[in-house]
Amino acid sequence: MLRKAMGFMVSNPLSGVVGVLALIVVVASLLSENFLNSYNLVIIARSLAFIGMITIAQSMLMILGELDLSLGAIGGFCGVIGGILMVKLGLNPWLAFALCLVIGALFGLLNGLLVTLLRLPSLVLTIGMAGVYGGLNLVITKGVAITGIPADIGFLGSGKWAGLPVPFWIMLLFLIVACFITLKTPFGRYMYAVGSNLSAARMLGIRADRVRLGVFAFAGFLAALAGMLMVARLGSAQPSIGDSWVLGPIAASVIGGVPTTGGIGTPLGAIFGAAIIGVIENVIVLLGISPYWQSMVSGAIVVIAISLDSISRRYFKRD
């Protein structure tokens, strides 16, 4: 039994990142008496929910060998569109919510079309598209938040179910969906094939561009979902929503075993990576570390986490 468990740990690609997360949680709980209190665990879960949805999206794109740096901007812009639909146009909040998810998917699809049709590198293209979505956001709002979001959808952002925030449950649901797609369907296998070697995948008859378009659209959908849930949480559509959702999800995915070169890793690993970053950011504030040191400390711990995982991978040959 013990040998089986050890064997599983050694052969499982996630054991490194889970081990690092467990270590950080233990250290955090020893350093701060407030770390394990229920209120703090709820706020960790809530912040993980929002960044987690973008991380799921980004990790799926990274499995393909792509990146979308406009996901935060899509989330923010969809939140503002949702605010306009609900407050200025008086649309039913649930209908507006659903419409924004469709619009988010279309924005993602547009990114995918530009990448596949124009054969542009997704990194460069989506930097530009982030400017387009973020710019449109400012043009429409003039930088001013849209207030008066109907209370009907407030539960989605601020509510709790079984003691945990509703956005966390929604993130878990989409994590299961993403893992199912990537690990259990032919589409998922095509994703890994495209990410490993695009030319070889095409030669095998895989419609690579369709796969890429599908993932870009799904990523846009998840970004819009995160944006709309944040609108529900804040009770206002803030033009700044999504500003901090750019680099964190990429770092989380890399920590969780999804390299930017594509072809390996899972959304589940990426979520563990996001949890590591979330716990570090949480405990840094709990310990009262100076804000001028926070980025350095947080960055250094992330580098140590990646290094530990990489060393353990090489040692145990888990890849």
């Binding site: 407030n34 209120y39 709990l286 804000p291």
Partner: peptide, 24 residues
Amino acid sequence: QYSAPQSANVAQQNEIIERAISTR
């Protein structure tokens, strides 16, 4: 205890306030 967000972002500031609340 001085605790500043790294960027001027409402969601990030809310997280800092929430973490402050948890330290009572």
